[in-house]
Amino acid sequence: MVDTHMTDPSLARLLLSAFTWFDTALRASLAARGLPELTHAQSLLMAHLQADGIRISELARRVGTTRQAAQKSVAALERAGLVETAPDPTNASARIARLTPAGLRNITAAAEVFAALELRLADRIGAEAAKQLRAALQADWGAPNAIDPAKRET
């Protein structure tokens, strides 16, 4: 999972590699079930979509991308039948993306795959290590403020 050319990868790099492991396995598992093949960007968007809808601009903010990039991915998901878009009833210049019934089935299948992946991870790294990993990731890390590497918070 971790790049072998890196002798001491940062924690951020390890977290990114772990996320990529989950996302790659998820997308392959969903495709193996005959569900639409998604790109990494589309997979990220699907994680934030809701049945009742979300503004595309808010979706972009949550994923950390541009509105234009989010619109492009939403359009591809719409062509795949996973989402539908409509004008925002509270703002005529905005659009809302919402899951279709097929999109909801995709999200349900994804939840099943994630549960199986967590079990696989526990088998591979040990149940106690998986439990500790979950606890560390659920801990309150505080706000993601800018820091000065020369100074350490106390």
Rank of each mutant, 00 (worst) to 15 (best):
V2L: 14
D3Y: 05
D3H: 07
H5V: 13
T7K: 15
D8G: 10
P9E: 04
L11P: 11
R13F: 02
R13H: 02
L14P: 06
L14Q: 06
L15D: 12
L16H: 10
L16Y: 10
S17Y: 14
A18I: 13
A18L: 13
T20M: 08
W21T: 06
W21P: 00
D23E: 11
D23H: 09
T24Y: 06
L26T: 02
L26A: 06
A28D: 12
S29Y: 02
L30G: 01
A31K: 11
A31M: 09
R33W: 08
R33N: 14
R33Y: 13
P36I: 01
E37H: 11
H40M: 05
H40E: 11
H40S: 07
A41M: 02
Q42K: 05
Q42E: 15
L45C: 09
M46K: 02
M46H: 03
H48Y: 11
H48P: 08
Q50R: 11
Q50P: 11
Q50C: 06
A51K: 10
A51I: 03
R55W: 00
L59V: 08
L59M: 09
R61A: 12
R62L: 15
R62K: 13
V63A: 08
G64Y: 14
T65P: 08
Q68G: 14
A70Y: 01
Q71W: 12
K72S: 10
K72F: 07
V74T: 10
V74E: 00
A76F: 07
L77S: 04
L77I: 04
E78K: 02
E78Y: 00
E78C: 03
E78Q: 02
R79V: 06
V83C: 04
E84G: 12
T85E: 14
A86C: 06
A86G: 11
A86P: 09
A86K: 08
D88L: 00
D88R: 00
T90W: 15
A92N: 13
A92V: 04
A92F: 11
S93V: 10
A94N: 09
R95G: 12
L99E: 03
T100N: 01
A102D: 07
A102Y: 05
R105N: 12
R105V: 02
R105G: 05
N106A: 10
N106I: 07
N106D: 14
I107K: 04
I107R: 08
T108C: 06
A109Q: 04
A109F: 00
E112Q: 13
V113C: 01
V113T: 01
V113M: 01
F114Y: 13
F114G: 00
A116F: 02
A116S: 13
L117C: 13
L117M: 11
L117R: 10
E118F: 11
L119C: 01
A122E: 04
R124Y: 09
R124S: 10
G126C: 08
A127G: 11
A129G: 11
A129V: 03
A130M: 05
K131N: 13
L133N: 05
L133H: 07
R134V: 14
L137V: 12
Q138I: 05
W141S: 13
G142S: 12
G142R: 07
P144M: 00
N145Q: 14
I147Y: 08
I147F: 02
P149Q: 00
P149L: 01
A150G: 06
R152A: 01
T154S: 14
